[in-house]
Design a protein around this nucleic acid. Sequence first.
DNA 1: GACCCGGCAGTAAACGTTTACATATTGCCA
DNA 2: TGGCAATATGTAAACGTTTACTGCCGGGTC
Lengths: 342, 342
Amino acid sequence: MPHTIKAQRSVTIKDVARKAGTSIATVSYVFSNAERNIRPELRQRVLQAATEIGYVKNAAASSIKGKPRGILAVVVAQFGNTFFTRMCVEIVSIARQAGYVVTLCNSDEDPDQERIILERLVAQRIDGCILCPAMSREENTGLLKKYRIPYVILERSFPESTTAHNFVGQDNYQSGHLATRHLLEAGHRRIAFSGWDSPIPNVCERVNGYQAALREFGVPAEQELVLTDEMSEAAGRRMAAKLLESKMTAAVLGHHETAKGALLHFQDKGIRWPDDLSLVVIGTPEWAGVLLPRITCIQRPEHPMAVAAAELLLDAIKHPDMPAAQHVFLSTVSEGDSVRER
Amino acid sequence: MPHTIKAQRSVTIKDVARKAGTSIATVSYVFSNAERNIRPELRQRVLQAATEIGYVKNAAASSIKGKPRGILAVVVAQFGNTFFTRMCVEIVSIARQAGYVVTLCNSDEDPDQERIILERLVAQRIDGCILCPAMSREENTGLLKKYRIPYVILERSFPESTTAHNFVGQDNYQSGHLATRHLLEAGHRRIAFSGWDSPIPNVCERVNGYQAALREFGVPAEQELVLTDEMSEAAGRRMAAKLLESKMTAAVLGHHETAKGALLHFQDKGIRWPDDLSLVVIGTPEWAGVLLPRITCIQRPEHPMAVAAAELLLDAIKHPDMPAAQHVFLSTVSEGDSVRER
DNA sequence: GACCCGGCAGTAAACGTTTACATATTGCCA
DNA sequence: TGGCAATATGTAAACGTTTACTGCCGGGTC
């Protein structure tokens, strides 16, 4: 509940008009409507008066007359996650170049929070929204649709997301497939997979890719080699411990947040990669660049995704009747030396 | 320039009133003024009508009647920097608990951008602002002051910042001092310092702390041992190369962004810490937790700073005439093994 | 000199709310 | 039944802009 204090009357267009000895219409024209001709001398007087008394246009007032607000919103599910942070940085930058400021919100993987946030944003009559949904909730995106707020769904491809909405994401199936094939090609046959145990389909798709790759190489998929757990360092450690028990020679760490915990566990136990264990991480964690030995990553294309999402949104704002588009980006294997021939 | 399309008339309080067969006042009271008694039956009818036609209050319209907007802003100089990101996450979370949404902006260390951003924010009539200024610009904070927008200066203590403004920051002098003393106590005498060459006083203060510590141990400060360069990985590598030439036995990496480059250079050259070189990093980079050998860090208290800034801002909003407060947080040495007795 | 036209500037009616004030409705008691 | 609270609802005037429309002035044309 924002604290409610009687805001003292701020400087308005009226004050400027009085000071400049003209009408409020003229002042308004000076500050907004570029077409209207104003005698340079008068315009100067208005500008002068405005700076003297410190006038700044009240965006809320313009907005109720149907002017766009110049505000975009990005709602992500895990703001602290570098994957999202990096995309946010990019989006903010592109938006700014287009003249927008960006409101960033964090649903913390909670669809109810997400709902509340979206309602607030609709109340603000934002010009557009990029949403990385916490879960599949037609009801939530429905709000945006109902208010005809242009939006782009980012990164999480719930079945309906990819069809009815503007969507930008990554091919998770391919990430899992790529990672696993990389290990298979190096000769590994007993390959584990660890991931985040979540309601979103991303990890699930990665597992599908992993299993498909195994099939292609004629390797039977063993249930016990696929582990999922909550998203935390501790969970990563737990999964690492279980993986070690299962005597695999290689693993796909399918989720960079838990991968960190797993690597810490390996470090603690004195298990070294690629000597003792070949590893591929899906994602591009901050620490991958300095960790020794280097680690092989399936890069998630944060940068192109952010750019695509921002541009798609700007497009959607310009062309409200544009049909929904879909962009999916592939992953690439980064160089690294955490995989050894076998 | 936000694209300007005639926004189609959205559902208003009038539509709800018509649908519910009552007056707009009643509808307004249902949605805002909690004191007013409305017959439960009528209230229900209004709510019903509102959901049916999908009414969401237009926050802009309420705002011009002096209602607080429920928007806070955070303007940082380097949004992509994990140090700031982590503080933003925390601030967003606290703000949300207090009922605010947060607009995050990135000045990219450019005071002109900062100016433009602040003007936009003032135009939005935000309820409060946390600002990490790009440079000392009285003119910029002056805008906030003039419009009586409560604000808190974060992290960068320009001389005037600490006196006239609400301020939350870290003791950079102490960080430099702590880092250097840690190395001196381990027996090192030839200690280098690398930092970011910037207009803000933070690094400079750290150098002061470094030099003071040297003095306390009777070690003459050598000019060539203090290096500064731009903020990039490449610059970090450059400084690392120069440091190696100067034959020091230990170094304070005074800025975590350049520290990464320096460490990469050391890795490339096969120089190992703490065997070949003792190191202390000022800051808590994302990668510090997994890097082997572990690295000693002077922790910047991001979390308490963010909490303090957010709470100070909320206080300032509640008590507009509160005198400016100042919070400075000390640093602590994290455990690590990148320093060796000598 | 009557007419029109272009260039400027002002008037006033919106926009979607909030809220002071007025009015209606009810229940209660004398 | 009249009077009076108390309660419930409506009226209308703001809030700070935008913008269609009207008005004014000077100069050119016939």
